[in-house]
Simulated assay, not measured.
Amino acid sequence: MKGTSVPLGFLPKPLLISVEALLPSVKLDARFATSQKYLQIRDSIREIGLIEPLIGSAVIRKTSQHTVLDGHLRLQAMKDIGLVEVPCLVSTDDETFTYNNQISRLSTIQEHQMIRHAIERGISIAKLAKGLCVDVSHVKKKSTLLDGICKEVIELLKDRQFSTLVTPILRRMKPTRQLECVELMVAANSLTASYAQALCAATPTAMLIDGKPITKRQPLSQEQHARMENEMAGLQAQYKIAEQSHGEDVFNLMLARGYIVKLMDNPRVMKYMQSNYSEVLEEFSRIAEMTSIEA
């Protein structure tokens, strides 16, 4: 609607607020100080600085304090480090649901981009590893995650979480095959290294970068490899067909379930089924109890 402005949920810029003026809204677990998450946050702030500001409520006039809506571990870490002022986004609402439940977690590619940006700003890999409480090799893998990956694949994976072992396998394939494999993995919701390895093993030699299949097992004969390629091609075609009709199939199944539930609400039908088709009635009962297709 024209002329209607959406009010901001918080002040545009973070404010530096004294740690003494920040009032926690939850009590931390007694063992938080030894948790991996807390140690990672503390070391990251010490080495790199605070990345995500705290979220606080508008100032409470009686006490001149702000209630912490999100960031209790970060606040405690900064207290332990000895900081006296911390950056805080001041909310215009005092509810905590949005900040604690409507969270979009970083995707694997976003993590990669953050690490690359940090390295470009001059932060060493060793310092990043120390700040994130991870091994140096892990940071190196994250920093080179997308090397050799085509832009179409990056676009498909940009909002997803997946193993860092997936892209080295994709890197062995040519861009066209990379895209085919990732489309299958996304459709199956299985972005795992084992699935990528299976797709790589079934990839025609001409679609591999070096023209050689990568496998630690006994290499397949040409006949076996050709058979696997044909089977995989057929499977992919069947999967595409099933994907196209999946929504309609689910809708029809739910309609059928609704009809069965309605039948079972009829005492006369139930009596007849119990007398003549008890086995069918048992299956009907299972269908009626289903809450989803996966059940």
Rank of each mutant, 00 (worst) to 15 (best):
I123N: 03
D249W: 12
M207I: 07
S91T: 12
Y259F: 11
S245H: 14
L146A: 02
S18E: 12
T192V: 02
T164Y: 08
S194K: 01
P12C: 01
L8F: 08
S107Y: 02
M185L: 01
I109Y: 02
Q40H: 07
A242T: 14
I260G: 04
G211K: 09
K140Y: 06
A198K: 11
C133A: 14
F10Y: 10
E20S: 11
V26A: 06
E85Y: 14
R74D: 06
D147T: 07
F251V: 01
S5N: 05
S44V: 03
V269E: 10
V90Y: 12
V68N: 12
G82D: 10
S44K: 01
A129W: 03
Y38H: 15
D29C: 00
C150L: 05
A237W: 04
L83W: 15
E243S: 13
I293N: 04
R286I: 05
T67D: 13
N252L: 15
L73E: 15
V6G: 10
L11F: 08
M290I: 02
H138E: 09
A237M: 09
R227Y: 10
E52Y: 13
G71R: 04
V19C: 11
T96D: 05
T98D: 13
A188S: 12
E289M: 09
D94G: 10
F162Q: 00
E180G: 04
T108K: 02
H117V: 09
R286V: 00
S25K: 12
L170K: 00
R217H: 08
E180L: 08
P7L: 11
I41M: 14
V269W: 07
L191P: 04
L199Y: 05
S285M: 12
A21R: 10
P213D: 09
V134Q: 07
T34P: 06
A188C: 11
M290C: 01
D265N: 11
L184E: 04
M290Q: 00
S190Q: 02
E180H: 06
S245W: 14
M78L: 13
A77N: 02
P204D: 06
R61V: 06
L170A: 03
H112R: 05
S137T: 05
Q76T: 05
V186P: 00
I260N: 00
V59F: 09
R227F: 07
Q224G: 07
Y239M: 10
I214V: 14
T203Q: 10
S44H: 00
E111K: 10
D29G: 08
T176H: 13
L184G: 03
M78A: 09
L106N: 10
Q197Y: 08
Q161P: 03
L263D: 11
P267Q: 05
G9C: 09
S143W: 05
T34Q: 15
L75R: 12
F97E: 15
K271I: 09
M264K: 04
A58R: 13
V139D: 05
I48Q: 00
L11Y: 06
E52Q: 15
L145A: 04
I109E: 04
